[in-house]
C-alpha cells in the first residue's frame, strides 16, 4: 500500500515537472502567455473590463487592461485624433498624470479602426513606466486597451495587439461590444 502511494506521488511529480517543461517550451516557442487577473481598479462609470498579466521571460511584467465602452458619441468619426486617445483610453485609471511620448498612429483590430499612442507615466510608488494605449471603435462603441510594464511601449503594443487578435479575445470583444 505504502509502495503504491510512493509510486503515485512520483508519477504526479513527474507529470507536473513535464507539464511545466512543456509549458515553458510552449511559452518560449509560441510567445508570451497571458494569465487573467482580477480587474485592479475601483468601479467607475463603465463596467469593469478584463485584466491580464503576461508570464514569460519576454514579458517584462507587462499587464493589459481591456474593456468595452458602449455609447461613445463620435459614432461617425470614431477615434479620429490623438486627443481622443488621451480622453477615452484608461490610462487615467493607472494615474491621472501621464504625458504622451509622441504622436500616435492609426491601428486596426479586426474590423475596428482607431489609434494607438505611447505615454510616459510614474506609478504611485514612484516607478517610471511607459504604456501603450489603444482605442478602436465600431459604430458608437469603443474598445480600449492599455498595456503597461517594464517593456518598451512599442513592444508592449505589439504583444497586446497580438493577444487581442487571438480568437478567444476577439470573441469576447464582440460579445462585450454587444452588451452580452
Amino acid at each position: 500500500m505504502q509502495r503504491a502511494a510512493t509510486i503515485l506521488v512520483a508519477v504526479i511529480a513527474l507529470s507536473a515537472l513535464s507539464g511545466v517543461g512543456a509549458y515553458q517550451m510552449t511559452s518560449s516557442r509560441q510567445g508570451p502567455h497571458w494569465q487573467e487577473i482580477a480587474w485592479p481598479f475601483p468601479r467607475d462609470g463603465w463596467p469593469a473590463g478584463r485584466a491580464f498579466r503576461c508570464d514569460g521571460r519576454s514579458c517584462d511584467g507587462v499587464e493589459l487592461y481591456v474593456r468595452a465602452k458602449r455609447g461613445f458619441c463620435n459614432c461617425d468619426r470614431g477615434v479620429a485624433d490623438d486627443e481622443e486617445v488621451d480622453r477615452v483610453a484608461d490610462i487615467d485609471l493607472i494615474t491621472p498624470r501621464f504625458t504622451p511620448m509622441a504622436h500616435g498612429d492609426g491601428v486596426k483590430l479586426g474590423d475596428m479602426q482607431g489609434r494607438v499612442r505611447h505615454y510616459a507615466l510614474t506609478l504611485p510608488d514612484g516607478t517610471p513606466r511607459t504604456v501603450a494605449a489603444i482605442a478602436v471603435s465600431r459604430r458608437c462603441d469603443l474598445l480600449v486597451a492599455v498595456a503597461q510594464g517594464r517593456a518598451e511601449a512599442r513592444t508592449a503594443q505589439h504583444m497586446a495587439l497580438a493577444f487581442l487578435e487571438t480568437e478567444p479575445l476577439a470573441a469576447w470583444t464582440i460579445a462585450a461590444l454587444e452588451g452580452r
Binding site: E83, R97, F98, T99
Partner: peptide
C-alpha cells in the same frame, strides 16, 4: 496640457 482629460 497633459494627463487625464476632464469630462467634456
Amino acid at each position: 496640457s497633459t494627463g487625464a482629460v476632464p469630462t467634456e
